[in-house]
Design a binder for these strands. Structure first.
Lengths: 341, 341
DNA sequence: TTGAAAGCGCTAACAT
DNA sequence: ATGTTAGCGCTTTCAA
């Protein structure tokens, strides 16, 4: 048989032997180098087909110094937001012939730096998605990770484009919307303490409060998943608020489910808003008012920025800032005449 | 500076130079080979730390003939089922120091074989998730993909473990459940035509029908997402069925949303069941009766089977068959006395 | 115990 | 137009 190499797979040498040419010529043919005699090229191609030869990407990567692979580090693969980003990234990168290596840090921020470094070494570039590590650490490792693109996080380190969603603006729009509906007592169901996007929401709320002295905004501890919302029902009811700004759509859905169980009517008794506009938001009962984030586009954009960096296109790309779009559906309505039960 | 190599990164040669030893010795130290003099080892380690040396995985892969990476090919990264499998796989593989490369075929079955081959060549093993390609093609390429694990698909090719969920049994249990509630007119909202799991459901329904001659089961065309369910409202109502078996939870949610808009009460007028028990199923209104699939475990199990293959542990692993568990919630109830509106 | 050297599979500069 | 040769960065025999 034609299996010569140590790995047992068919290598360039086998094809060269079969076609009666040198490795170099085979390599040239495989890479579409036209300085090869058509007859010989045909012979090589025939041999390659017959042997079912497929170039070994590892050897190729070592020789070329590139892997045609990019890495992405996410805090939690279970989070729909990160899933959507991954999808957008994967799709866009695939269009340019790049593959995606994933690294899930499982919210263990101390692992992120190591994970990122390891991923980066196997890839041509890296996307760091909402990293939980501290600013100092991020700035310190950023240079060693170049080409690097940040999502929902910025850094002082130079040459690192950031794609950030303006959660502050989004939460302001939602609060504004509730106020226009007559609500004067709001509550914010916060997200994970370490999350930068939660910080942005808090900043947005501070701005909102400064210009709406007559509106009462209660702060409630929370998280980022269904259960958070579901478990927050008591706290929400105790707050006396009639307009609830949930950290995200998942929390909002959990909350609505809990309120439903208590017989509280949404939006007649209490209005609930989410954030992100995940696909499910259109199909909840009632449908969810939320702030839409062009999340899949974020993934695609991350690839485009990374690609520019990899190709060393000197176009200074400071990143992109995305503004959420208010998506009014049925979970928000006029404030009840009497306070909520 | 210590940057010598062509790639601009610090290589083993830099460390060797700095420590005053050969590449070989550095390699030995980095790999914990104890045949190195402790003093020299310490010197090497110090040099490595000082230069922030990190071995290049590509060079390592080429020398060792392994990448410590596995690949997974999915038909659609947007599908929660595949996301969950990916997560379980990624988590389990990470525990053993393996990374995951993803390849999304975007439901283009003609691309699957190429995608799978490319992914496999960069990895030590492959997981093919519910491949849409034909049986013949699958059996033909399977040997070249070894080590290979199949999810929700089987093949005649030997040495390929399959993890399959028994969708047939699940749909039978759901239908049985509806019949026990008094429903005699059911409808099945089918999934994608090419999907093997849809085929299994159909087989299950055939078995069910054979033993329930008095029950009428209408077959309705469909798909696998929200919109499918939402758009099926008319067909569902026209069928006169009071118990609807949706292809999966997403379709069920879309359908319930559509029914709600039409003023049809679930489950008073019509009962709806899903499939998969995605996290959202607990939080729909009403909560969704479904068949639970231990989906994250499937991903983990895929890794364990793949690991055994990679390690060439001769333990014949013919795969695992998972039986869905009936999860009765609020979207299914007694059949209405009079036919649905 | 260490170094020199071969080789993993490929690409590319150089030579012919 | 093609072959020879030298790497890419690493591991691993084989000598010493």
């Amino acid at each position: 048989m034609a299996r010569k190499s140590a790995t047992g797979r068919i290598g360039i040498a086998d094809v060269a032997l079969k076609a009666g040419v040198s490795h170099a010529t085979v390599s040239r043919v495989m890479n579409g180098n036209f300085t090869v005699d058509p007859d010989i090229a045909a012979r090589v191609r025939a041999a390659a087909v017959e042997l079912k030869y497929q170039p070994n990407p590892v050897g190729r990567s070592l020789a070329l110094g590139k892997t045609d692979t990019i890495g992405i580090v996410v805090p939690d693969l279970a989070n729909p937001t990160f899933q959507a980003i991954l999808r957008g990234l994967s799709r866009a990168a695939a269009q340019d012939g790049y593959r995606v290596l994933i690294a899930d840090s499982f919210e263990v921020s101390s692992e992120e730096a190591i994970l990122a470094g390891e991923a980066r070494r196997r890839c041509d570039g890296l996307v760091l998605c909402a990293p939980r590590m501290g600013d100092a650490e991020l700035a310190e490792i950023a240079p060693s990770l170049h080409p690097l693109v940040l999502i929902n996080r910025t850094t002082a380190a130079p040459g690192v484009p950031s794609l950030v969603v303006d959660y502050g603006l989004g939460v302001q729009a939602l609060a504004e919307h509730l106020v226009e509906l007559g609500h004067t007592r709001l509550a914010f169901l916060a997200g994970p303490a370490g999350s930068a996007s939660n910080g942005l929401r808090l900043e947005g709320l501070a701005v909102f409060k400064a210009s709406h002295a007559h509106v009462d905004v209660t702060m409630l501890d929370g998280g980022s998943d269904f259960d958070t919302g579901h478990e927050a029902v008591d706290a929400v009811l105790a707050s006396g608020a009639t307009g609830i700004l949930a950290f995200n759509d998942l929390v909002a859905m959990g909350l609505m489910s809990g309120l439903h169980e208590r017989g509280v009517n949404v939006p007649a008794d209490i209005s609930v808003t989410g954030f992100d506009d995940i696909p499910f938001a259109r199909y909840t009962t009632p449908t969810l008012t939320t702030a839409a984030v062009p999340i899949a586009e974020l993934g695609a954009q991350a690839w485009h920025q990374l690609r520019a960096l990899i190709r060393q296109e000197g176009t200074e790309t400071p990143g992109v800032r995305y503004q959420p779009r208010l998506e009014i559906r049925s979970s928000s309505g006029s404030a009840p005449v009497s306070p909520a039960p």
